[in-house]
């Protein structure tokens, strides 16, 4: 077990060092996802201008979308594009020779990159509060810890879902098309565009059984200190994680038999 954890630590350290070389790129990646700030502006204006009761004040909207931005940054996953490239180019072969499942190398790459991204997120958050001091708030210790737990679960679930889809790369060169489609569902049902409390009743009911609202909306609610049905959320996440984990193992075994190490 210790040897295993040691390997993981080395992987994370390597990918962190690698990412430090691309610091400028990391900043640009962070800055390229400004959509939450656009939605923030539009919803703040909507809650200010009209007579409609949206249930949130402009300041609350600002906080909500800041949370959305940060959660999205922390739970970002792109493993399918990596796996696809490695399978198509045949560079998965050297990874198969390593005495550890290739899954962990990809997983640790994400963790290392996350560490490199963190300082910019902190700076951006600080800058946001300097520009808009009225939105400053501090989640309580309890909700902060629960949000951290929820975020970790959200990241793992996102990663497993995408990794399961990535296994399709053994059969098709365009596995990422599945992820592209899944990603739209994620954007529209996760609370990325608007808090779920504003969704029509029917859509919200359906969304609550999909994994999506727990990836953004639930952690955001926790950070904002609003009431959350945490038990239900974590249970749904666990079920989906298990489903996709099973799918991944199944496809991995079948796919590996088909894998021919193209170009190698």
């Amino acid at each position: 077990m210790n040897a295993f954890l040691g390997k993981l630590r080395t992987y994370v350290a390597v990918s962190y060092a690698e990412m430090l070389e691309y610091r400028a790129e990391v900043v640009l990646w962070v800055l390229s996802s400004i959509m939450p700030f656009l939605m923030m502006g539009v919803w703040m204006q909507a809650s200010q201008g009209s007579q409609a009761d949206l249930g949130l004040t402009p300041t609350e909207f600002a906080r909500y979308f800041l949370c959305v931005f940060l959660i999205r940054q922390v739970t970002l996953v792109w493993v399918i594009y990596e796996v696809e490239r490695h399978v198509v180019e045949g560079t998965l072969s050297p990874r198969l020779l390593q005495p550890i499942d290739p899954f962990w190398r990809f997983f640790c790459d994400h963790l290392g990159e996350r560490l490199a991204r963190l300082p910019f997120l902190i700076i951006l958050t600080a800058l946001f509060f300097v520009l808009y001091p009225a939105a400053l708030w501090c989640p309580s210790l309890r909700s902060g810890l629960l949000a951290a737990l929820c975020l970790a679960a959200a990241f793992v679930l996102r990663f497993i879902m995408q990794y399961a889809f990535a296994m399709v790369a053994f059969w098709s060169e365009r596995a990422s098309a599945i992820e592209d489609f899944w990603f739209f569902m994620y954007l529209f049902l996760s609370g990325y565009l608007a808090p779920l409390s504003l969704f029509p009743e029917g859509v919200r009911r359906v969304a609550e059984w999909t994994p999506f609202p727990y990836l953004i909306y639930m952690p955001a609610q926790l950070l904002l200190g609003r009431p959350v049905d945490l038990g239900h959320g974590l249970a749904v996440m666990a079920v989906w994680s298990l489903v996709f984990f099973g799918l991944y193992r199944l496809l991995w075994r079948a796919g590996l038999r088909r894998y021919s190490g193209m170009g190698a």
Binding site: Q45, A46, G49, Q51, A52, A194, F199, P200
Partner: peptide
């Protein structure tokens, strides 16, 4: 759908 949320909640852009 994202756009319609403004109108179903009675806000206008």
């Amino acid at each position: 759908f994202g756009l319609s949320l403004f109108y179903t909640n009675g806000a206008d852009l």
